[in-house]
C-alpha cells in the first residue's frame, strides 16, 4: 500500500474522477484537527490532509460529511459551523457557507438550491450554492440528519432523539408527510425498487428522551409513503451506517462488523459478513460504486490516525490504508 505524505500550502493534489474516494476524518472533538483524505482505488494510493495541503489552513473541527455537486466538493465541518466548497481539480476553496448552527449534511436540489441538515437546530437551512448564501429555512421540529431525493421529494431522517422520516416537497420546501419509524433512525438507503430502508439505533441507553428499544430496520414503500415491513434485532448491540450497493440490490450496515442483506430477504442476517472480532473499531462504511468493494473506516482509539479496510464484496480483506483521526464519512468521486 503506497501512502503519500500531506504536502504544504499550494500543493498540487488532483483527484482522479471515477476512482477517488474521499474520507472525511472527524479529528478529536474540540481540537480543530479534522482532515480530508483521498484514496485512489485504482493506484491504491492515499493522500492525507488534502484540504490543508491545498488551502494552507486546517479543515476545522469535526468534519462531518462530503457531497459532490458539479465540479465542487462540499465539505461539512460540524463544529466549525461551516461548509467549504472546494474545486475538485485542485481542492482549493471556491467558497463557503456560514451562519449554520451544527451542520451535518448537504443535499442538492438544483444548482441554486441545497438543503443543510442540523443536529441541534430544528430547521433545515436552505442555501444557494452559487452565492453561498442562506436563503431560507424549513421548520422541522426535530434534529435532522441524512437526506435522500426521490421523485421530487427529499426524505430526511430525524436521528437525534427523533422517531420520524420527513417527506419534503422540493418545489414548495414544505413537509408533506411525517413517517413514524423506530427510535432514532440513524441512517437510510434507497433500493432499486424505490423503497427506503431505515436503520434505527433504538436510542442507545435507558433514559434517552426518545425512548429505548432494540435497534431495528424499517422499510418504507415510497409509492405509498407507508412502512411496509419492520424488523427488530435480537439484542441492543449498536447499529449504524446503512448503505446500499450501486445497483440498489444489496444493503450493508455496521453491527458487530459489516452486515449484508439482499433487499428481497425476509429476515435480517444472523451473522455479520465481516465480523470485527479482531478488535477493530468499525466507525464508517461505504461500498464502491464501480466494483462493489466494501470500505470500512476504523477509528481505533479515536485519538490517533485511523485506518480504512478494503474488502471484496464477499468479505475478503484486500488492503488497508491509514487516514486521519476518526474516519467518519466517505464520498465517491
Amino acid at each position: 500500500m503506497k501512502e503519500q505524505n500531506p504536502g504544504t500550502e499550494d500543493g498540487t493534489f488532483s483527484p482522479v474522477q471515477g476512482q477517488s474516494l474521499f474520507v472525511v476524518n472527524e479529528g478529536s472533538f474540540g481540537s480543530g484537527n479534522s482532515s480530508l483524505s483521498c484514496y485512489d482505488a485504482v493506484s491504491q494510493t492515499v493522500t492525507n490532509g488534502v484540504f490543508s495541503m491545498a488551502n494552507g489552513v486546517p479543515l476545522g473541527d469535526t468534519g462531518q460529511s462530503m457531497t459532490i455537486h458539479g465540479d465542487n466538493g462540499w465539505v461539512v465541518v460540524n463544529n466549525s459551523k461551516i461548509i467549504f466548497a472546494v474545486g475538485l481539480s485542485d481542492m482549493k476553496e471556491k467558497g463557503r457557507i456560514t451562519g449554520l448552527t451544527s451542520p451535518r449534511n448537504i443535499a442538492f436540489v438544483s444548482d441554486t438550491k441545497a438543503y443543510v441538515t442540523d443536529l441541534y437546530d430544528t430547521k433545515i437551512t436552505i442555501v444557494n450554492p452559487q452565492t453561498y448564501q442562506v436563503t431560507g429555512w424549513i421548520e422541522t421540529e426535530a434534529s435532522t440528519e441524512q437526506m435522500i431525493i426521490s421523485d421530487g421529494y427529499m426524505y430526511v431522517n430525524c436521528w437525534s432523539y427523533g422517531t420520524e422520516i420527513l417527506k419534503i416537497d422540493l418545489a414548495s420546501d414544505a413537509i408533506v408527510k411525517r413517517i413514524k419509524v423506530g427510535i432514532q433512525p440513524c441512517s437510510m438507503a434507497l433500493d432499486s425498487q424505490n423503497r427506503l430502508w431505515v436503520l434505527t439505533d433504538g436510542g442507545g441507553w435507558e433514559g434517552n428522551p426518545a425512548g429505548y428499544e432494540s435497534p431495528g430496520m424499517s422499510r418504507i414503500d415510497l409509492s405509498t409513503g407507508e412502512v411496509d415491513a419492520e424488523w427488530k434485532f435480537d439484542d441492543y448491540t449498536s447499529v449504524s451506517d446503512l448503505t446500499v450497493s450501486h445497483d440498489g440490490n444489496t444493503l450493508y450496515w455496521l453491527r458487530s462488523g459489516v452486515c449484508k442483506m439482499d433487499i428481497n430477504a425476509t429476515d435480517l442476517p444472523s451473522e455479520p459478513l465481516i465480523p470485527n472480532s479482531s478488535g477493530q473499531t468499525f466507525y464508517s462504511l461505504t461500498v464502491s460504486p464501480s466494483d462493489g468493494d466494501i470500505y470500512v473506516g476504523d477509528a481505533i482509539d479515536y485519538s490517533q490516525n485511523g485506518k480504512v479496510y478494503r474488502y471484496s464484496a464477499d468479505g475478503t480483506l484486500k488492503s488497508e490504508f491509514s487516514v486521519g483521526i476518526c474516519p467518519g464519512a466517505f464520498c465517491w468521486y
Binding site: G30, G32, G60, D61, N79, S80, K81, I82, T98, G99
Partner: peptide, 11 residues
C-alpha cells in the same frame, strides 16, 4: 471560540 470556529459569536 476555537480558532477554527466560523460562527458569529453573537449567535
Amino acid at each position: 471560540k476555537l480558532t477554527v470556529d466560523y460562527s458569529d459569536p453573537g449567535d
